[in-house]
C-alpha cells in the first residue's frame, strides 16, 4: 500500500518521472479545461441560457462572492488563482468516487506545491497592491520586534496549509484502504461519502485561508487609522 501517489511511477528518466500524482493532476486539468471550453464555447448573453452555463456561472459568481466577503475589493483580479485552487482541490476530492483514481491532493508534493504557490502569491499580491516598501514594512508591525515572528508565521502557515490538506486527503484514502481490508462493503462506501464531504471542506478551507492571507497582505488599512 502506497502512502502517496508519488510512489506509483509510470515512467522515469533519471530525475524526471511520471507518477500517478502528475497523471491525475493532468486528468483533473483536462476535465476542467475541456468542460469549460465546451460550455463557454457558445455562451449566451441573453436571459435564456443552458444549464451548464448556469452551473458555471453559479460556481464562478459564488467564488467571486466569497473572495469579496473575505475583504478583497477586486475579486476578479484574484479569481484565476484562488478559484483555480478551490476547483482543483474540489475536483480532485470528487474524483475519488471513481475507482482507481488517486487524488493528486493526497500527495504531499502536490499540497506543498500549492502551499508554495500561496507562499509566493501572497507577497506578490501584497507588493502589487501596496508597494514593496509598504509590504515589507508590514512585517515590522506592530513593532520591529515582531519581524522574526512574522516571518516564522509566514513560513509555518504555509507548512500548515500543505500538511493540513495532505493529512486530510491522505487520511481519507488511508481509512478507506484500511476499512476495505476489514469490512469489505458497507463502511468503505460510508467513508467514501464522508471523504467527499471532507474533500470539499478541505478545498474550501484551503481556498479561504489563501484568500485571507492575500487579503491580509493587500490590506491598505494603516495602524494609525485603526488606532485613531
Amino acid at each position: 500500500m502506497n502512502l502517496s501517489p508519488d510512489q506509483i511511477i509510470f515512467w522515469q528518466l533519471g530525475f524526471i518521472k511520471l507518477n500517478a500524482t502528475i497523471v491525475s493532476t493532468w486528468a483533473v486539468i483536462l476535465v476542467l479545461v475541456l468542460s469549460s471550453m465546451l460550455i463557454t464555447h457558445k455562451l449566451s448573453t441573453h436571459l435564456h441560457r443552458s444549464r451548464w452555463q448556469n452551473l458555471l456561472e453559479v460556481v464562478v459568481i459564488n467564488i467571486s462572492k466569497q473572495i469579496e466577503d473575505v475583504g478583497l475589493k477586486h475579486p476578479h483580479h484574484y479569481l484565476a488563482f484562488l478559484g483555480s485552487l478551490f476547483l482543483f482541490i474540489a475536483i480532485s476530492a470528487l474524483g475519488t468516487v471513481f475507482p482507481g483514481f488517486e487524488p493528486a491532493t493526497g500527495s504531499l508534493s502536490t499540497t506543498a506545491a500549492l502551499a508554495l504557490c500561496v507562499f509566493i502569491a501572497v507577497p506578490l499580491y501584497g507588493i502589487q497592491e501596496q508597494g514593496l516598501a509598504s509590504y515589507l514594512a508590514s512585517y515590522t508591525k506592530p513593532t520591529f520586534i515582531m519581524l522574526p515572528f512574522n516571518i516564522i508565521s509566514e513560513i509555518s502557515r504555509t507548512l500548515a496549509l500543505a500538511v493540513r490538506l495532505f493529512g486530510n486527503m491522505m487520511s481519507g484514502a488511508m481509512i478507506i484502504g484500511i476499512l476495505v481490508s476489514i469490512t469489505p462493503f458497507l463502511f468503505p462506501i460510508v467513508m467514501t461519502v464522508l471523504g467527499l464531504l471532507t474533500g470539499i471542506v478541505q478545498a474550501y478551507i484551503f481556498f479561504i485561508l489563501a484568500t485571507v492571507y492575500i487579503a491580509a497582505a493587500t490590506s491598505t488599512i494603516k495602524p494609525k487609522a485603526n488606532g485613531s
Partner: peptide, 8 residues
C-alpha cells in the same frame, strides 16, 4: 513524502 520534481 516530498518528491521535489513532483512539487515543481
Amino acid at each position: 513524502l516530498i518528491d521535489w520534481f513532483t512539487v515543481l
